[in-house]
Each structure stands twice: as structure tokens, then as C-alpha cells.
Amino acid sequence: MSSLFIADLHLDDSRPQITSLFEQYLAGDDVRGADALYILGDLVEAWIGDDDDAELPRRTARATRAVRDAGVPVYFMAGNRDFLLGDAFAERAGLTLLEDGTVHDLYGTPTLLMHGDVLCTDDVTYQAVRRNVRTPEWKAQVLAMPLDARRALAAQARKDSRAHTGATQETIMDVNAQAVAQAMRKAGVGRLIHGHTHRPAIHRFDLDGQTAERIVLGDWYEQGSVLRIAPGTLQLSVLRD
């Protein structure tokens, strides 16, 4: 009995070994015997729309759909790279979509689930961009573009993101402690799980006189990272191909 959490896989044709690792893991006993699999954003390096006819989205959909067909629910929460993922792909891939900031009860512990980028409030440049691209108008405009134009836009966005990351202090791009506390208070929880920052760790801290817990999921750039939660236990582990 366990629930599994992954995030920030950033699946991309430039890292075929990671896509293979993802497929192998989802086909294995760890996932097929789980109570649920949660993917908390940035499943792919860039999502240009549910109508993308490339092979990678098809492979991804086959892998997650097989998990769902085996009787394991697969929950998906959009990240900053795949927020254009919609109902059509979710249906093909067997995904149950979650809103950022959803609370799920995990074996008796209400737990706040987030991608994590909204908590990085010190990065005001990123937050301004985020607000702009999440509007229905921006999404509709982009999704109306031809696929080739969207691919070019995604490539430019990745280039801009790398430039911003290289020019910004790491502390600014990390979560803000006050934003974390505010989100947990609003949700009424003592545990938060998120990704985005690529800094896997389990942080325990005081929240209004009680011990709280923030669990950060690792990325999948060079290896896999999985959080396993079972009644009374949790473990962050590394996967290698």
C-alpha cells in the first residue's frame, strides 16, 4: 500500500534514456502495485498542445494509460512547461487532472499538492510572465497557431528560460518561506508536496506551533526521483536506468 509522486521529468527527444527510464518505471511492479501515481507537473520539456503529432506525446500517453488500465489512478497537475495540456490528451493518456493547490488525504494526513512555481514569489520576473501566459486569451491565441509555429515558440521559451535561470540568483528562484506558510495555512494542512525547484529534500519546520513538513520532489534530467508514501512512512529515492 503506497502512493507514488514524481515531477519535473522534462521528457524530451534530447534525453531518450530518461524517456526509456520513465516507461520502464511505469511498467514495473512498484507502480503497478501502487494505490496511485501522482505527476506534479513538467512531465515534458515543452507542451505545445494536445494536437501535437510528435512521437513523444504518443509514447507518454501509452505509458500512463497502461498504468490506469492496470487499475492504478494516475493524477496529473500542470507545471510551468505543460500548462497547455488539456482534457483531450488527459483522456487519451488516462490522466485525472488536478488543480494546483489540491488537497488529498494520504493515509490519514491531509496533504497539499502543488507544482511549486507559484511559491517562488521572490522571482518577480518569472511571476509576471506566469500571470500573462496563464490567461485564457493567451492560451487560445497560442493554440490557434500552426504546430510548427508553436514548436518555434516553445524553443524560444526554453532559450529565454535558460537565460533567466543563468542570470538569476538561486535563492531568488527557490520557494519563499512566507508563501509556503501562507499556502499551508489557507489549505489547513501540515504537509506540502511540490516540485519545480529541482532540490529534492524533506524539510520540517514550525508552523504556528506545530511541526510541518515540506517535501520537494527531484527532477529527472539525469536520473529518476520518486517519493513513496505509505501509512506512517515516506521515502525519497533515486532511479537509474
Rank of each mutant, 00 (worst) to 15 (best):
A7D: 02
D8F: 08
L9I: 12
L9H: 05
H10T: 07
L11W: 06
D12K: 14
D13H: 13
D13I: 10
S14I: 09
S14F: 05
S14Q: 08
R15Q: 12
P16K: 11
P16D: 06
Q17K: 10
I18K: 04
T19G: 07
S20I: 02
Q24S: 12
A27G: 15
D29C: 10
D29M: 10
R32M: 07
A34S: 15
A34N: 10
A36I: 12
A36N: 11
L37Y: 12
L40K: 04
W47S: 02
W47Y: 07
I48A: 00
E55P: 00
R58M: 01
R59F: 02
R59Y: 06
T64F: 05
R68F: 09
P73K: 14
Y75M: 05
A78I: 15
N80G: 01
R81W: 14
D82P: 14
D82A: 14
F83M: 11
F83Y: 13
F83Q: 12
L85T: 14
L85I: 13
R92N: 03
G94C: 12
L95I: 14
L97T: 08
L98D: 11
D100M: 08
H104Q: 09
H104D: 04
D105Y: 04
T109D: 00
T109V: 02
T109R: 06
L112W: 04
L113P: 00
M114N: 05
M114D: 02
C120K: 04
C120I: 04
T121V: 06
D122C: 02
Q127V: 11
Q127H: 03
V129Y: 15
R131S: 13
V133A: 03
K139E: 10
A140F: 13
V142E: 07
L143H: 03
L143G: 07
M145C: 10
D148M: 15
D148L: 15
D148N: 15
R150M: 13
R150I: 14
L153W: 14
L153M: 15
A155P: 04
D160K: 14
D160H: 07
R162C: 07
R162P: 01
A163S: 12
H164C: 03
T168W: 09
T168K: 08
Q169W: 07
Q169R: 14
E170N: 09
T171A: 11
T171H: 09
N176F: 07
A177P: 03
Q178P: 00
A181C: 03
A187S: 09
R191S: 06
L192Q: 05
G195S: 10
H196L: 08
R199Y: 09
R199V: 08
A201G: 12
G209C: 05
T211F: 01
T211L: 07
A212W: 11
I215C: 04
I215K: 12
G218K: 08
G218V: 10
D219C: 05
S225N: 10
V226L: 06
V226E: 04
L227Y: 08
L227N: 09
R228T: 15
I229L: 06
I229D: 00
P231D: 08
G232R: 14
L234C: 05
Q235A: 14
L236R: 15
L236G: 06
V238H: 06
V238Y: 09
R240Y: 04
D241F: 04
